[in-house]
Amino acid sequence: MKYQSRKKAIVLLADGTIFYGKAVGKEGTAFGEVCFNTGMTGYQEIFTDPSYFGQLMVATNAHIGNYGTNSEEVESDSIKIAGLIVKNFSYEFSRDLADSSLQDFLEKNNLLAISDVDTRALVSYIRDNGAMNALISTDIDDIDLLKKQLAAVPDMNGLELASKVSTKEPYFYGNPNATYKISALDIGVKKNILRNLAERDAYVKVFPYNATFDEMSEWNPDGYFLSNGPGDPEPLSQAIETAKEIIKNDLPLFGICLGHQVIALANGISTYKMHHGHRGINHPVKNLITGKGEITSQNHGFAINREDAESNPDVEITHVHLNDNTVAGMRMKSKNCFSVQYHPEASPGPNDSIYLFDEFINNIKNTKVEA
């Protein structure tokens, strides 16, 4: 079998630290910011999530690939991570619903992956030293050359990536005869978010990352949505301006993750790059309005400034992350706008946060009644 004589490979971090492994299949070199996800399942959804664009993903679960892949379990049209790092890679799989192996899925998407890495040590190192640029490579004869190539990779801080994953042209999702019309700004949207909106009797028109308010409002939608996505929110000047216009006109607005950060910036609340981010399906969040706890799926390397949010008279913090007290949700006091820094569509709770979509639709419904 081809995995019995695999080529040696390395993980090279920007500070010069090296971890050793073996190629899963494809050979070569891949660059990105190294990060880790603590989810025990859902690897296919993670790999295809546009929010992970430009990331070298470390899987903390010891076995990856054991349940294969299914063509329906994707969040976009292709793999979005830059590369994959695992401990044990399963070439064989066992699941009735699977239609191919993970290896075939990776090869189809031309993704470089390495296994046999001490992922416990690597994750511990990232926790201590922070997320940083890295590479994975099977071309390990000239480490100095790899270091020079890695030094040329741009830092995630200040990097605009939404344009890399956004749709090029507007498109529609859902039933054209649905009760509600929503304009969604695609700065890295996941398919399951659109599915959740469509399931609530909404017809969604999805716009490119740089769409203006005039473009999004031209077909007279009932509400507006700002999606999740990758990279630093600060360079998204047009998205921030679009959010400002939606807010100024007091139209129903909901933002998730990167969309949440864009709404914060539209309100003069700054954002910052986190030490190593939140990525997993067991993140505890407290809803400050209801007092209830939620187990959430999270995937972000940036966050909004809590002090700025607390001092903003127009904003109320609605959710906090219980591990580090970062802002996990907010709403505007006098505008029809709210947002969260996690993924209600992912449902790891399993349904702790799904109410947020219902709140958005109710906001739209109430606005239509008032009109």
Rank of each mutant, 00 (worst) to 15 (best):
M1H: 11
S5F: 13
K8I: 02
L12C: 10
G16I: 08
F19Y: 15
E33Y: 12
F36S: 11
N37Y: 12
T38L: 14
T41Q: 09
Y43C: 11
F47T: 11
T48D: 12
P50F: 12
G54E: 05
E72G: 02
F89E: 03
Y91I: 08
F93A: 12
S94F: 15
R95F: 15
S101L: 08
K108M: 12
I114P: 02
D116T: 07
T119L: 10
L122P: 11
L122D: 10
S124H: 03
M132K: 06
N133Q: 07
I136D: 00
P154W: 01
T167N: 14
F172H: 09
Y173T: 03
A184C: 14
L194K: 02
L197G: 06
D201Y: 09
V204N: 06
V206E: 00
D214C: 04
W219N: 15
D232M: 01
P233A: 13
S237P: 00
S237F: 15
Q238R: 11
T242G: 04
E245G: 05
I246T: 06
P252W: 06
C257S: 13
A266D: 04
N267V: 10
I269R: 01
S270E: 10
T271E: 00
K273C: 00
R279T: 13
G280Y: 10
H283K: 08
L288W: 07
I295M: 10
R306M: 08
D308H: 11
D308Y: 10
D314R: 07
N323Q: 13
T326E: 15
G329D: 05
M332E: 08
N336P: 00
E345Q: 14
E345D: 13
N351T: 14
I354V: 15
Y355I: 09
F357T: 04
I364S: 04
K365E: 13
